[in-house]
């Protein structure tokens, strides 16, 4: 309200307080400085021969760029991303309803708690053999495992998000005569949405981890995990270059996904950051 009536805020940056865009530029600059310093140390360390197996930063980055135009690598990257992108929405579809159920019906939550607490700490990567046994062809096993692993953070966040719903808000809707289903749909779910979204963001990085892990475990059939295996079976500096360039790509993809999701988060849940 006051923002509309004080024109000073909208136009030129006022003294003493940096404008939002300038603050942002400053932050980006600091990020860039950090990355540059890291690359410099890497370059110097490699050239000085401190780590004999380590290719120089410049050579690695050149390889990163080359890989983008390598059809074999591009195909592998695409297949990893496809599996991750297929798994995430499925995980949402599985985990959100279960989380809602557990969060709204304490009896169900108590009955299943022991199982949940038992299953949750099992590293999903350890389930790869089991998944390969139950799901064939291999792409199914990959997606199944992604769905399984990505479901956990979504499930847990939904559960806590729903529990955190303000009772006054649910009572308000109830007092107007709405039933339980309407209360869940119109109050619990939207109120828990920011938590659920955070779960989805965590799950997104898990999908990449699982996709690459399964690919690496199985080898032969595509994905950047498989590309890694092939690269590492080669010999000499070239193999190491490929391995590092692949890792950089995995990191870049993960970063890009997270940044996009964070942006959307700020937009979607502006009402939370009052």
């Amino acid at each position: 309200m006051t923002a509309e009536t004080t024109p000073a805020r909208a136009g030129q940056p006022n003294q003493g307080r940096p404008s939002p865009s300038r603050a942002r530029r400053g932050k980006l600059l600091r990020h860039a400085v950090g990355v540059a310093a890291f690359l410099l140390v890497w370059e110097l360390a490699a050239r000085a021969g401190l780590l004999p197996w380590l290719p120089a930063a410049s050579a690695s980055l050149a390889r990163v760029a080359e890989l983008a135009f390598d059809p074999a690598f591009a195909g592998d990257l695409l297949s990893t991303l496809t599996a991750a992108a297929a798994g995430l929405p499925l995980a949402v579809l599985v985990a959100v309803p279960i989380g809602l159920l557990l969060g709204t019906v304490p009896a169900v939550e108590e009955t299943t708690r022991a199982i949940v607490e038992f299953l949750r700490p099992i590293p999903s990567v350890a389930l790869i053999p089991l998944a390969l046994f139950f799901f064939q062809p291999e792409i199914n096993a990959k997606v199944a495992l992604i769905v399984y692993a990505a479901s956990w953070p979504i499930l847990i966040n939904t559960l806590y998000g729903v529990r955190d719903v303000d009772p006054v808000a649910t009572e308000t809707l109830r007092s107007f005569g709405f039933g339980s289903a309407a209360v869940i749909w119109r109050v619990s779910l939207p109120s828990a949405a920011p938590f659920i979204y955070t779960g989805i963001r965590l799950a997104a990085s898990i999908t990449l981890i699982l996709a690459i892990s399964v690919e690496y475990f199985v080898g032969g059939s595509g994905g950047i995990g498989a590309f890694l295996i092939q690269a590492s079976t080669g010999i000499g500096a070239d193999a190491m270059l490929d391995v590092i360039a692949t890792l950089v790509w995995a990191g870049l993809v993960g970063l890009a996904v997270n940044v996009l999701l964070l942006r959307a988060e700020r937009r979607l849940f502006r009402w939370r950051h009052a």
């Binding site: 303000d166 006054v168 808000a169 009572e171 308000t172 809707l173 109830r174 007092s175 107007f176 005569g177 119109r186 109050v187 939207p190 109120s191 949405a193 849940f269 009402w271 939370r272 009052a274």
Partner: peptide, 28 residues
Amino acid sequence: TPDNLAVVFQDYSRSLFPWMSVADNVAL
């Protein structure tokens, strides 16, 4: 809850739904 009831809660700020516009809050 009896039919045709409306309550104005003492905790009015918590009884508004923060994710909805004011008009949607009233219309819901």
